[in-house]
Simulated assay, not measured.
Amino acid sequence: MMQPANHRTGTIAIAAAVDAVLVVVFVSIGRSSHAEGLDLAGVAGTAWPFVAALAVGWIVARAWRHPLAIWPTGVVVWAVTVVGGMLLRALSGQGTQFAFIIVATLTLAAFLLGWRLIALLVTRPGRARTADASRTDPA
């Protein structure tokens, strides 16, 4: 079933915004845990490699087609964001220590895949019908 264009466009915009916000949250948590400032310039300087890689991930995954899907959309967006973000950090002279790569990979997986899992559970077809059916009195 096709969604109306305005509803679909809204879903795509929200999904892209959620991804971007979560990447910035990831960066902010990292900066805060290392006692680095959360000023706009500092956060932007740390976030840009991941935000740029996120945009590439959206293009590679063609995420606008199924922005809420965990597979393949979420997995591709996540993988490209991590790998591309690390490559851009290395090319720009920012750190890519092994521990950071592990933490970034796991945190971004939790964020970029986790919200899609929640969206799937909340919007799953049949969920409302199952809940309604369980409320009916058999007598």
Score class of each variant (00 low, 15 high):
1 M>Q: 07
2 M>A: 11
3 Q>W: 14
3 Q>Y: 13
6 N>K: 09
7 H>S: 08
9 T>V: 00
10 G>M: 07
12 I>T: 05
14 I>E: 00
15 A>L: 05
17 A>Q: 04
17 A>G: 05
17 A>K: 05
18 V>A: 00
19 D>Q: 01
21 V>D: 01
22 L>F: 09
22 L>A: 09
22 L>T: 11
24 V>M: 03
24 V>L: 12
26 F>C: 08
27 V>S: 00
27 V>I: 13
27 V>Q: 06
28 S>G: 02
29 I>Y: 12
33 S>D: 13
35 A>V: 14
35 A>Y: 13
37 G>Y: 09
40 L>R: 14
41 A>D: 11
42 G>R: 04
43 V>W: 12
44 A>M: 02
44 A>C: 08
45 G>Q: 09
49 P>V: 02
50 F>L: 00
51 V>T: 11
51 V>W: 06
53 A>E: 10
53 A>V: 09
54 L>H: 00
57 G>W: 03
60 V>C: 04
62 R>E: 04
66 H>G: 02
67 P>Y: 06
72 P>V: 09
73 T>M: 07
74 G>Q: 05
74 G>A: 02
77 V>C: 01
78 W>Y: 05
78 W>I: 03
80 V>Y: 14
80 V>W: 13
81 T>R: 03
84 G>Y: 11
87 L>K: 10
88 L>S: 11
89 R>Q: 02
91 L>K: 04
91 L>C: 08
95 G>Q: 14
96 T>A: 10
97 Q>S: 15
98 F>A: 13
99 A>W: 11
99 A>R: 08
101 I>D: 07
102 I>V: 15
102 I>E: 10
104 A>Q: 06
105 T>N: 09
107 T>C: 09
107 T>Y: 07
109 A>C: 09
109 A>Q: 10
114 G>I: 10
118 I>M: 08
118 I>W: 15
121 L>G: 14
122 V>C: 02
135 R>P: 03
135 R>L: 15
135 R>Q: 14
136 T>H: 11
137 D>S: 11
138 P>A: 08
